[in-house]
């Protein structure tokens, strides 16, 4: 019987899920996802998490709880770095520990460390570690890794090609993918905008070249990957004439966002006529307030266009 590996549908799931799913399937495992966030999951997460945790981490714990009794393993990698000389937010580094100490009686956690700070090939070490836990051989694991990478590449390609030609306006959303693509905490923001006749662009849709163009505007190198990506995307959107407006989504309690968000907001202010708005989301955010702001923002763009 194939082993069941549970993947919480939160945080880096939204970035790497095609790769992860393919990888475990290739290792003859059945992947169990916790499903889209629901009120029940958020409530469970808020109850389990320490007070200081940010909203996305609280949500992650809720997803873990959802999977608790359904799987043989939980896949919660310790992601330290995914880029040369850069780091991921410390909360990702401590994620497996935070989960262990917040929830009792969990199935074994596959918490292999992913640290590509010095070289990308460290990933091989990480995937082989996973293979060892699942008792799979070198060749099968290497092939699974390769296939996973291909699946991810294809997924990103599809994201970039998704275009809505009927849309009248183009709005860029700046924010972590685990907020934008979680329809519950983002309160379906992307769909709401689409209904208003807006085409939505996210940082994930940018090509590596576009990202490099954006990043060339930074006065110095940043070593937090996620924040750097946000700054690069912001600068790219600023200089792109096709983008009619930018909405920045930040999560309540996110430390890096409070700095990077502020920097981006100041940059936006320096640019005349740049339509820009920041929305800060937390578990209590009311939908009515969000809708009012979105409508007003789209009105503003429309008005300027006249």
């Amino acid at each position: 019987m194939s082993k069941k590996v549970g993947i919480p549908q939160a945080l880096f799931y939204h970035r790497y899920s095609p790769a992860w799913k393919t990888f475990f399937n290739e290792l003859d495992c059945e992947v169990v996802e916790s499903g889209q966030s629901t009120k029940e999951i958020i409530d469970a997460g808020v109850k389990l998490a320490p007070d200081e945790a940010c909203l996305p981490v609280k949500l992650f714990l809720g997803h873990v709880k959802q999977l608790q009794n359904q799987v043989d393993y939980l896949f919660i990698p310790r992601v330290v770095s995914i880029e040369n000389k850069e780091y991921i937010c410390p909360k990702f580094m401590g994620l497996p520990d935070m989960v262990r100490y917040s929830i009792n009686d969990l199935p074994p956690i596959i918490d292999t460390t992913i640290d590509l700070k010095t070289k990308k090939s460290n990933l091989v070490k990480s995937v082989l570690e996973v293979g060892e836990v699942l008792d799979k051989g070198y060749w099968q694991v290497s092939k699974a890794c390769w296939k996973g990478w291909r699946a991810l590449k294809k997924h990103r390609q599809r994201l970039r090609e998704a275009k809505n030609n009927d849309a009248q306006y183009k709005i860029a959303i700046l924010g972590h993918e685990y907020i934008i693509y979680d329809s519950h905490i983002s309160m379906n923001l992307v769909d709401k905008l689409k209904e208003m006749g807006v085409e939505v662009v996210t940082p994930e849709m940018l090509t590596p070249q576009a990202m490099r163009v954006g990043l060339s505007n930074l006065s110095k190198d940043m070593f937090w990957t996620l924040g750097k990506k946000m700054m690069g995307a912001a600068h790219y959107f600023f200089s792109n004439q096709e983008i009619d407006g930018i909405i920045q989504l930040t999560a309540f309690g996110c430390g890096p966002d409070s700095l990077v968000g502020e920097m981006i907001e100041r940059e936006a202010k320096k640019r005349d006529g740049q339509a820009f708005m920041t929305l800060n989301l937390d578990e209590h955010t009311g939908e009515a307030g969000l809708v009012t702001r979105l409508e007003a923002f789209v009105d503003m763009i429309q008005w300027e266009g006249v």
Partner: peptide, 11 residues
């Protein structure tokens, strides 16, 4: 005569 920015109280 055109709205260029707005803000609203949050929490």
């Amino acid at each position: 005569g055109v709205v260029v920015d707005f803000g609203m109280n949050t929490v």
